[in-house]
């Protein structure tokens, strides 16, 4: 494996146990950093607003992203459309720390994802199941997150995706080695990746939860289900008291197994984002890019 790929996987390792927050302005970025975010995702509109606005959603203005890079010292991520390698090239040119090839934006290609091995900057990609996760890793992604359902404040899809991934991982672990070739065929991924999961009981890259996290309890739930960290998009800056909620979610991820601390953290957070139930959604972003 190339040095750069390993270094990029290792940056994701440093983000573990942390919360990556969506921010749209330098001011929000500073609030996120002060609250203890381990990285921020710079974007023009958070998923809930993308959902409300409709239309084609694209990479953010590089100037806006640079403003956020200047405002904070923690890593800054930004999103490009699925398959839009030119947007990714632009983000690499401004030295973004991580690119999210994201289903939250309108896909630019309905067949091919970006060949992420062509880039020096790292990529994180969403996945609903193990096959998707390993296909993205094969394309060069050095970090995976569940897709969940962004902009809803509804955790059900993130739970579904994380449970699916973990149960498929357990299934591979329990297989005899001769069965792995067939498993690779079914998952539509290279044998070597299947073998890695079989031997190690985990993905070869860090795996975060994303899409629908709105409360400290949501974050703790995802961590207990096996996430190594959490992305929070609309959940923070669409809530009544973003600063307090951000701090609470950060500490909930650290102490995800401690109900006493979680109870304290969950007190008095003000209003959570209103949210949309799964059944009320017209656009399933998680179905983009498989």
């Amino acid at each position: 494996m190339e040095d750069r790929t390993i270094l990029n996987r290792q940056l994701a390792q440093m983000l573990k146990g942390g919360v990556i927050m969506d921010v749209t302005t330098p001011e929000q970025a500073r609030i996120a950093e002060a609250a203890g975010a381990c990285a921020v995702m710079a974007l023009e509109r958070i998923p809930a607003d993308i959902r409300a606005a409709g239309g084609v959603s694209r990479m953010s203005d590089p100037k806006m992203i640079k403003g956020i890079q200047e405002a904070v010292t923690i890593p800054v991520m930004a999103k490009c459309r699925i398959g839009h390698f030119a947007e990714a090239q632009i983000l690499e040119a401004i030295e973004i720390d991580y690119i999210d090839e994201s289903e939250v934006l309108s896909p630019a290609d309905d067949v091919y994802h970006i060949n992420k091995r062509n880039f020096k900057v790292p990529f994180v990609c969403g996945a609903k199941d193990l096959g998707e996760a390993l296909r993205r890793i094969n394309e060069g992604a050095t970090m995976i997150r569940t897709k969940g359902e962004p902009g809803t404040g509804d955790i059900i899809q993130a739970v579904r995706h994380m449970r699916m991934m973990q149960s498929e991982i357990r299934r591979l672990v329990s297989m005899a080695e001769d069965e792995l070739y067939e498993a690779a065929k079914q998952l539509q991924v290279p044998y070597e990746l299947v073998l890695y999961v079989h031997q190690n009981g985990k993905l070869p890259v860090v795996n975060f939860a994303a899409g629908g996290v709105a409360t400290p309890a949501d974050a703790a739930l995802m961590m207990q289900l096996g996430a190594e960290g959490v992305f929070v998009g609309s959940g923070i800056f669409k809530s009544g008291n973003p600063e307090k909620r951000a701090q609470a979610i950060v500490k909930a991820v650290t102490n995800y197994n401690n109900p006493t601390i979680l109870a304290e953290l969950s007190e008095d957070l003000g209003e959570a984002m209103v949210g949309i139930n799964e059944s009320e959604i017209e656009l399933l972003m998680a179905e983009r890019g498989k």
Binding site: L15, V19, G36, C38, I74, Q247, V250
Partner: peptide, 15 residues
């Protein structure tokens, strides 16, 4: 360990 010092400092102080 390694990680983000701002995040760890914040959590360390709050806890």
């Amino acid at each position: 360990p390694g990680g983000e010092s701002t995040a760890m400092m914040r959590i360390m102080k709050d806890l």
